[in-house]
Write a protein that binds this DNA or RNA. Structure first.
Length: 283
DNA sequence: CCACGGCCTGATTC
DNA sequence: AGAATCAGGCCGT
């Protein structure tokens, strides 16, 4: 199935810029899961080619539009966040990098896993979780495992989670599962909640602080003003906007929301992506 | 309020 | 080679 795209989109960067951890690349195709469907997708000159299961390709179109946020007013967003020459250049270099609209539960778990870890390890852990506890989905000669829901994860021992490589995050994941199952955290209603209200609720989960809450809000809950600050973004802002001065996270957060406005999250993703590529090349 | 060490563990560095 | 150090934080002191 072909889907024409007439706006900036860089599929590879979007799927591999550290927002989602379970996409793999096979022969130029990205294989992963979108809203319970295994999807094989690639970008050509005029748009996307993909196949899917169990939903038909026809029915998957709207899911793909949702997942890649192709409904965002991307040109207005660029206008809004390009406040200076540096951001103009960063956006231009990585034009088409999108924020994804992931499923809230998997996104929350992913970023609980991310604390003091590395992307390859985060991916391995999440894959292990899904392989062990999720339902397999088949497409052509590929298999991918759906992500286990909160009920399933709440039912496994912390020791299993540790065995799967979660380390000290195992107890956080167990708590999060319980809180979602018990209805304390209305994870699927947070898209309709105010940013700060949803954030306060997420941060009530042990192991979820400002950064992990903001990642979840930005990458799965439509809160485009969320500006997660990890070490890369911290470094990027300090070096590129404050002449290398060491800043407090809280001051960066306030500055970013003020400076970039309602689409600060997009600015964050571009800063993160370019700083990380730069950091990797340097080392 | 701020600063700091500890936490699991695999990969990378010295 | 084997031991430190680091990795997309958070929590308690």
């Amino acid at each position: 199935m072909h889907l024409s795209i007439d706006q900036p989109l860089d599929l590879k960067s979007s799927l591999e810029s550290g927002q989602a951890f379970r996409w793999r690349c096979v022969d130029g195709w990205h294989v992963g899961i979108i809203y319970g469907n295994i999807v094989k997708i690639r970008q050509g000159s005029s748009g996307l080619d993909f196949s899917s299961h169990p939903s038909s390709e026809h029915d998957m179109v709207s899911n793909i539009v949702d997942y890649l946020r192709l409904d965002d007013p991307i040109d207005s967003i660029y206008d809004a966040i390009i406040k200076d020459d540096l951001m103009a250049q960063v956006v231009n270099t990585h034009k088409g990098l999108r924020i994804l609209r992931q499923e809230p539960w998997e996104c929350l778990v992913s970023f609980i896993c991310s604390a003091t870890s590395s992307i390859p390890r985060i991916s391995a852990t999440l894959e292990a979780l899904a392989n062990q506890l999720g339902a397999p989905l088949l497409l052509q000669n590929e298999v991918a495992y759906d992500f286990p829901n909160a009920e399933v994860l709440a039912g496994v021992e912390e020791s299993l989670l540790r065995r799967l490589g979660m380390g000290f995050r195992a107890k956080y994941l167990y708590c999060a599962s319980r809180m979602v199952v018990d209805g304390q955290i209305p994870i699927n209603e947070m898209r309709r909640m105010l940013y700060q209200d949803a954030k306060d609720q997420l941060m009530a989960i042990p192991g979820v602080g400002e950064k992990i809450a903001d990642c979840t809000l930005l990458f799965s809950m439509d809160k485009l003003q969320a500006f997660p600050i990890d070490r890369w973004v911290k470094r990027a802002v300090e070096e590129w906007y404050f002449d290398g001065e060491i800043m407090r996270i809280e001051d960066i957060r306030k500055w970013a929301l003020e400076y970039f406005g309602d689409y600060a999250g997009y600015a964050q993703q571009y800063l993160f992506h370019s700083k990380r590529l730069q950091g990797k090349k340097a080392t």
